[in-house]
Nucleic acid binder design. Structure first.
Lengths: 341, 341
DNA sequence: CTGAAAGCGCTTACAG
DNA sequence: CTGAAAGCGCTTACAG
């Protein structure tokens, strides 16, 4: 009943435990004859190495910790698909750590690093600004970290990262609305205490300013990265004394709530209100009307993040801290219309 | 630079490593005076126990493996929220294993059990039918397993499970349509090779039969648990020579694709086609029109599954195999109408 | 209340 | 090609 160990196999095969270990890890180095005896013993006993002992001995867990704001967001689901596929192909498991959109503190990240539960960390969540050396300061330990998406404070540039140019993409979306005659453009951002959509807000503000357009008080509303939150934000926008003619939502999930509220208020999209989203999640094209949005190569981002992380883990040296910028694309569907004069 | 271990702390504090260990695990047993010295040494060195060594030594990982069909499905996201909240509260991490809707084989589950990467398994994915003893047969090892949702073969009843009565719920949904005058009711199920929506199909078929209603060839279509799949299934339903007047989708995600295709075809919902879903995901109430569906207490299911699993893990004995049936509820919104005569 | 010592199951130089 | 032995960092009876 008790778990069979390498000793049992060795005894049955009539060899030392070192030889059993070699058969498993470096079969070339053992004589075929011996190998066969060991194979038989393994089969007979149903032996399988204790991964806990292996991890401990080797100092490697073969698990990657992924920190992300919300597993429920379809966008992060797509990023995760990319992460998962390369992890699986290379024999790594994933430990998922959800922050629920809160900003991680130094201590939280430090605790993860110190816990040794993983060989590396993928950070998709936003962190409060802190120095670049916090992770190594704590008990002298460091862990490879790669950052994905824009989920990071701007002064934390010491880590490699993979993301689109969020500022440029948001400017592009805003300029698209402007080019269609819109002057009153509102923005629904994510969460007050999160940096997650900060770059997008910056891009929106920059585009408005360059176009010489005023942003009225109240046109930038908090959508809390949720359907409910964006419904409330939209309501306040619709009641604004200078009602906008277009709303730019910092992600598609919020655009879904936004569109629902607009339709509930009896307004037609896009004739009476233009909507633009961000991410191009799988629901975007089946919304009613289909949502104009910024496409991010989510799965590709996940894959690239993992390639860089595994490189650092397995080569033992840094891949460099220059961010890898992947292309975005404005997807024009039917939630945006030229402003009727 | 090298990692500080318990030895370093012991040396600095001038005590044995056993005492350091006790300070961490059973502080009552060490004199206050000594405890303070050790505390100081820990603070000074930034020591934190090597969890790998602890796990190995204790034979406990404090991680739970969760096997689920798709992390992207909003329903499973909600179940995961429940799982995650009790896991976090009890100090457990989650290792996520996505099956992409394929059916797990004996060997795959066996490999997970044997790998010792986790203290227990939550199975939300469907498995092909296999004997109840497969898990313990493999190398004499067993691991507590609790099954959530309906994701399991019917003959695998040796494991505790938590789920709604899927058959009854599906019958209820079907009967609701029948009570509104519908006679031509189609069903979109999940995936051919998955048991995931089998019970729901059974409930639909039973209700139709009891009502004496025929199910035409082609009225039961495969939606592949995806938007694209359900769009295609819906198209075939709309082209059927006996076009149904109502479609029951085995989950809400497929209902989203279904509704989109119906509207694309120029039909009005619910006037010309009634739709009913299953799960009550967070998007259901903001669909256009809002979706009538079966509510499952997803988060609650996740919590209960974890309670049972942790009980088995920590008490070391079975919680019994009787399934825990949680209540469902038919949520009537506006995607269903009385059949115009 | 504390220390010396054994041992968890492996891997890996080091000899031979 | 193979074995004896050390050691990874802890925990835990067992003495005292």
């Amino acid at each position: 009943m008790t778990q069979v160990s390498i000793k049992d196999v060795a005894k049955i095969a009539g060899v030392s435990i070192a030889t059993v270990s070699r058969c498993l890890n470096d079969p070339e180095r053992v004589k075929e004859n011996t190998r066969i005896k060991v194979q038989d013993a393994i089969l007979k006993t149903g032996y399988s190495p204790n991964t806990l002992a292996q991890s401990f001995r080797r100092g490697k867990t073969h698990v990657i910790m992924v920190v992300l704001p919300s597993v429920g967001d379809p966008f992060f689901t797509d990023v995760m698909r990319g992460i998962r596929s390369v992890a699986a192909g290379r024999g790594y498991s994933l430990l998922i750590n959800e922050t629920q959109f809160t900003t991680m503190t130094e201590d939280e990240v430090g605790a993860m690093v110190v816990s040794r539960q993983a060989d590396g960390i993928v950070l998709l969540a936003s962190m409060s600004p802190f120095g670049t050396r916090v992770l190594s300061a704590k008990s002298g330990r460091t862990l490879p970290i790669v950052v994905g998406c824009e989920a990071i404070s701007s002064d934390l540039t010491a880590y490699p990262s993979v993301h689109i140019d969020n500022v440029a993409a948001a400017s592009e979306a805003t300029n698209y609305l402007i080019s269609l005659g819109h002057r009153r453009i509102a923005f629904i951002y994510g969460l007050e205490q999160s940096l997650l959509t900060k770059d997008r807000e910056d891009g929106y503000r920059a585009a408005m300013q360059i176009a010489g357009l005023e942003i009225e008080n109240g046109w930038v509303a908090e959508g809390k990265l949720s359907i409910k939150g964006s419904i409330e934000a939209t309501r306040s926008l619709l009641n604004h004394h200078k009602r906008p003619t277009a709303i730019f939502c910092a992600n598609d999930e919020m655009a879904m709530g936004c569109m629902h509220e607009i339709k509930s208020a009896g307004l037609r999209i896009p004739e009476e209100m233009s909507i633009i989203g961000f991410d191009d999640i799988r629901y975007a094209e089946i919304m009613d009307p289909p949502l104009t949005t910024i496409y991010q190569p989510a799965e590709d981002i996940g894959e690239r993040v993992m390639y860089r992380l595994l490189y650092e883990i397995e080569e033992g040296r840094s891949v460099g801290a220059e961010p890898e910028i992947v292309p975005h694309r404005l997807i024009m569907r039917r939630s945006v219309a030229r402003l009727a004069i």
